[in-house]
């Protein structure tokens, strides 16, 4: 089973919930897909065993084979190739803009002369490791790279579905989040009972509905703010699976980079019952 942990709003407690859940269950794997700012390892403190470069395939054009037909440029959805039959030198030119390339492979697939081969352009690192019996992996996007989904997809390829896979997602509702949650059996949406939490929860719920991924809500800092999140969930039939109070011990543990179950081991039970509720929802 794959459970992703997402939120519309940032800072609601995704990583707190994802790490708490991962540490409370047996036979789990935690994938941190927030590759622009991975931070689950701060709570988890895993032993990193392997580190490797991850890249996206970008086109390289063999000018001896190329007939300058322009097919590659016309099929590129991202406009990463320009074909110039009347160039300065007179022989024509093909320009590739690797930063615009999403690595979809359409150019090489459609080239009638097989003049395009794809070469990996590194965009980040993937690190894998362990914490006791728990498997861990995260991606780290290189500084200056604009596109995280290709790296996110590669981190997700490491998912070992013989285990309970928990994926920590980036915040928001844009491409990196979509790339992260796709294929999940359920998405836990972590929110807080404030107007900001409410606003962004509604956006995230809409996105998950479009993707046809079942959702469950965790309300963090549940004893502050207003009851609009609960009313919203009730009206929409969205299950609230867990509530975490605004407690000094939790904030203290967070400030030291400790997972919630360290000062409050009773949360292990809460997270285990969360998994049971998730199991019931996904079997529907």
């Amino acid at each position: 089973m794959i459970i992703s942990v997402a939120s519309g709003k940032g800072g609601t407690g995704k990583t707190t919930a994802a790490v708490g859940l991962a540490l409370s269950l047996d036979n789990t794997q935690l994938l941190d897909c927030d590759v622009e700012e991975p931070n689950a390892h701060i709570f988890l403190k895993p032993e990193i065993e392997k580190s490797f470069k991850a890249g996206i395939p970008v086109p390289v054009v063999d000018r001896d084979r190329c007939s300058l037909c322009g097919k590659c440029a016309s099929v590129c959805k991202y406009n990463a190739i320009a074909v110039l039959p009347n160039s300065a030198a007179g022989s024509g030119k093909v320009l590739v803009f690797p930063q615009l390339c999403h690595g979809c492979g359409a150019c090489s697939m459609f080239c009638p002369k097989q003049a395009i081969k794809e070469v990996d352009r590194p965009i980040g690192n993937i690190e894998t490791g362990k914490k006791n019996g728990l498997l861990f992996a995260h991606g780290r996007l290189d500084v200056g790279e604009a596109m995280s989904p290709p790296l996110i997809r590669q981190v997700k390829k490491l998912a070992d579905t013989s285990r309970t896979v928990i994926i920590d997602a980036p915040p928001g509702t844009s491409c990196p989040v979509i790339a992260t949650v796709k294929g999940s059996d359920l998405c836990l949406l972590v929110t807080e009972p404030t107007p900001f939490g409410m606003n962004d929860l509604a956006l995230a719920v809409e996105a998950m509905h479009k993707l046809k991924i079942p959702v469950g809500v965790i309300i963090n800092r549940c004893d502050m703010g207003n009851d609009k999140v609960e009313t919203y969930c009730k009206n929409r039939n969205i299950p609230v699976l867990m509530k975490i109070p605004f407690k000094k011990e939790i904030a203290k543990a967070y400030s030291k980079g400790s997972p919630i179950i360290e000062p409050l081991p009773q949360y292990k039970k809460e997270f285990r019952s969360l998994l049971k509720k998730i199991g019931a929802l996904t079997r529907k």
Partner: peptide, 21 residues
């Protein structure tokens, strides 16, 4: 045609201008 392209409007427009000679 590149007015509302998601990305790469510049190179595509340059390609068009070049194709017109």
């Amino acid at each position: 045609p590149n007015l509302s392209a998601n990305s790469g409007a510049g190179p595509q427009s340059a390609q068009l201008v070049s194709s017109k000679g």
